[in-house]
């Protein structure tokens, strides 16, 4: 089998994630974009694991999933509390932490 389509899909998903992250203002959408990028890398990891015939990539993707789950817990909590305080989930409104 060839792994090129999988890698291509991974790259497309990653690019969508990056563009979404940079263009959208809603914190939830931004979060989803980050998740998309993480899963794109997971796909690449798994593809390489399959290509090389060992489990290193699968192990790495599990790590990524664990970290992503933890990140979601903290991140969503922050977003919810910001929303409660400001009645807005736009990242451009939460710009007080600056020079």
């Amino acid at each position: 089998m060839t792994s090129e389509p999988y890698l291509l899909l991974s790259a497309i998903l990653f690019a969508i994630g990056v563009i979404g992250f940079m263009l959208r203002r809603n914190a939830i959408i931004l979060f989803m974009s980050v998740e998309l990028m993480l899963n794109a890398t997971n796909l690449a990891f798994v593809t390489f694991s399959r290509q090389h015939g060992n489990l290193d990539g699968q192990v790495a993707s599990f790590f990524v999933m664990v970290v992503a789950a933890a990140e979601v817990v903290v991140g969503l909590a922050i977003i919810v509390s910001i929303y409660r305080a400001r009645r807005s989930a736009s990242v451009d409104d939460a710009n007080l932490l600056k020079f």
Binding site: M22, V91, D92, F99
Partner: peptide, 17 residues
């Protein structure tokens, strides 16, 4: 240099990318 810290998440994201 501190002007780079403008508080906009998306600017950081751009820098990051």
């Amino acid at each position: 240099l501190r002007r780079a810290q403008n508080g906009y998440v998306r600017t950081y994201g751009l820098t990051f990318v």
